[in-house]
Design a protein around this nucleic acid. Sequence first.
DNA 1: GTATTGCGCTAGTTAAACTAGAACAATAGG
DNA 2: CCTATTGTTCTAGTTTAACTAGCGCAATAC
Lengths: 116, 116
Amino acid sequence: MLIRLDPASATPLFDQLAGSIRASIISGRVAAGERLPAARDLATSLDVNVHTILRAYQELRDEGLIELRRGRGAIVASAPRDFGDLTAAIDSVVAEARASGVPPAALAALIREAYQ
Amino acid sequence: MLIRLDPASATPLFDQLAGSIRASIISGRVAAGERLPAARDLATSLDVNVHTILRAYQELRDEGLIELRRGRGAIVASAPRDFGDLTAAIDSVVAEARASGVPPAALAALIREAYQ
DNA sequence: GTATTGCGCTAGTTAAACTAGAACAATAGG
DNA sequence: CCTATTGTTCTAGTTTAACTAGCGCAATAC
């Protein structure tokens, strides 16, 4: 699993982390039942604190994407909902936003606005 | 123009502000050429610092949505791009996300991921 | 039993957001 | 020309979230 972090980014590390893993799960690049790297290991390899990793994991757990158990680790949830329509919709929105010259931050704000 | 701010929210005030105004512009609730309230006035009525208002305005200016001139104020840009397709795409994404039980934060992260 | 792994706690540092106040420059309008 | 308005720019202080660090504890696997 490839994870790249940008310490200079405005988006928090744990959010970048969760976002990267989330994308991998929803796109199917990591299968259900598969185990994510142990927090301590990932922290070492990414040169980041363990708590930051765990916070990202907990975010994904709250979304129901993974399960966390002591001694076992982080396991991709086995309730593989169908995200096909969602990913398609996301792709078209991003394409539309790019075409309209709407920057990522603005798009995110618009989505948030529409969600309320 | 109705603007509601939630000081308890995790999203910064200036972002909430920009988001609210941005939505008003793109949806057409405020017309091109129309003038937004003066920063000092808006700051008073929202009980927020002037700099916070100005920062939101500058964000919108960077997106090309408004123009800022000293002495004149903040004016909605007269380059009325067609956001019809974008808003439609946004609506369908939000509907899809709701149906799939994807929380706002997760959706935002997915969008950000897709944008890169 | 032992190593692994997530959980929980305290604590310190750093950066961003927000506030506050002031002076300044461009515009509008009498 | 004069004055009020409005965004721009600067300094400065406070607060809060993110991040780091280290430790012990509890559940699981082998």
